[in-house]
Design a protein around this nucleic acid. Sequence first.
DNA 1: ACGGATATTCTTGTATACAAGAATCTTGAC
DNA 2: GTCAAGATTCTTGTATACAAGAATATCCGT
Lengths: 221, 221
Amino acid sequence: MIGMEIRRADMIADELEELVFAGEFGDGDRLDEVKLAAHFGVSRTPLREAFQRLVASGLAEQIPRRGVFVRQPGPVELMEMFETMAEIEGVCGRLAAMRMSDTAIEVLAAANTRCQQAIENSDIDAYYRENEVFHHFIYQQSGNSFLEQEALRLHRRLKPFRRHQLKFRGRMAQSMSEHVAIVAALKQGDPDRAAEALRGHVAIQGEKFHMLMSSLKTAAQ
Amino acid sequence: MIGMEIRRADMIADELEELVFAGEFGDGDRLDEVKLAAHFGVSRTPLREAFQRLVASGLAEQIPRRGVFVRQPGPVELMEMFETMAEIEGVCGRLAAMRMSDTAIEVLAAANTRCQQAIENSDIDAYYRENEVFHHFIYQQSGNSFLEQEALRLHRRLKPFRRHQLKFRGRMAQSMSEHVAIVAALKQGDPDRAAEALRGHVAIQGEKFHMLMSSLKTAAQ
DNA sequence: ACGGATATTCTTGTATACAAGAATCTTGAC
DNA sequence: GTCAAGATTCTTGTATACAAGAATATCCGT
């Protein structure tokens, strides 16, 4: 690797992203340049460069001459993001079904087995880790690294919420059976079934909740 | 609208984006801070903030202590982007098929008619304009504004290449018949057919070329 | 003349200084 | 006591100054 991130601006951007993800800032909170500069022990300059990164990735909004304000997704946007993630995973699955090699399928099955073992050991952290490996591997096997990057970006963005949500419902077992169906569809090279399985796996609550929200939103306009 | 973009950094970022899109910079070209500062008549500070935006949107790459270098997509990445666009449009179509109202279908059909008229008048610019309206409207009718934004982002990114490519092949007529099929599928509320039609419409060359490239790439590793 | 160590210059990254718009506070009229 | 106009303070946006790593040129030994 070249130039291993000596820039303080980048480190600060990473840290700010983490803080926003972790919910340390509420929606609409202003990111105070001087306070944060003091907090990080730097001048305003690198902070302002870091802000641009947050703004560009949609984590904050910049209003000229006013400042930058964090933007936490509300329930509607969150659901839209989950639906988009589900659709993108479905796409990855569709493409992967057409492109995965037999050995790649083996690798995926192995990741799934480790996932299963984590559940049997009640090792939640391991489950999350292996589940992530499973999904990232499917993105990669779409054979489209641009799509892969987009999927990773959204996956990362949703990470905090996914964790929160899965913990609530004890649906790890169901999740595993869905994984099995996904692997089977990929093994058979059935694009539509793989897409459907992945979409359903990620969508979770699915259409009803969305349509409810969506109708509320349009009614409110 | 609030604070109508007084920031020079933002104007510069926009202008730099345009320049990169227009191909004024080649792949790997370094964005010289002092030269560009002189060119825009500002100091390095706003330029550096603008750079962050380019880097965040993937138009440039920053190497610490070296500078920022523009990244033009090569043929492989370009094809990956087109494939991703095709898949995302397919997703938009799938969702729109389930969610569009009858009046929305009318609006879409009207846009399509204007598209057709533009062709009959051999008005290329009007065709591009109306074609864009047509596609943007489908994104919107996905009922998922997060997805809509993502689609718009990618559509915008591909704009220069699409224009270039469509001009070459005189396939406007074929494109129109595809539009008709898309509208028909949406009218019938058939998600799979709508998705398929849109995917095919955008994909253009499709799988063979991709697989060729993809195999070349993996072989080269 | 060639190669490598050193010196010089150039460029980036950060800090500070300054300008101007926004927000807040003060004051005065009613 | 309330409201508005003006004054004051605060914050952002930009310019400049300075520090340090990278690139380039110079010089020396062989």
